[in-house]
Amino acid sequence: MSDVKKFLYLNRRAPYGTIYALESLEVVLIGAAFEQDVSLAFVDDGVFQLTKGQNTDGIGMKNFSPTFRALGDYDVQKLFVERESLEERGLSEDDLIEVVYEDEDDDWEEKPAIRVISRAEMADVMADADVVLSF
């Protein structure tokens, strides 16, 4: 298909406090049906969406962090996380959930979908996108 566009979903909000994070994920899942080149970016408080060990039993909301792990099934294989945003929040890559996808071009080997990149590299990811959807 020649008219594949690069879509970048830019996530800058923490989960649960507002509806943005969950809405973004739902749009990604629905949008995945259109077979575009989809990437997710996690910048600023958006990095909090991917923390391990979320347990929402006490606040009566749905824990949607496991759903990120289904993104590979929806052919979403690139989750870019900004290193500086993590560091500013006292977090590191080890604090994040594991998300994998199966690489069709490499005998369906499981590969990590989360890529921690620098702010400068994130700027390049943004500049490279045809469409940026902000949440």
Binding site: L29, P66, T67
Partner: peptide, 15 residues
């Protein structure tokens, strides 16, 4: 139970 979503039909068939 694992992913907290009901998969879309093409995802279901693939899985």
């Amino acid at each position: 139970d694992e992913y907290q979503i009901a998969p879309a039909v093409r995802v279901l068939i693939k899985s």
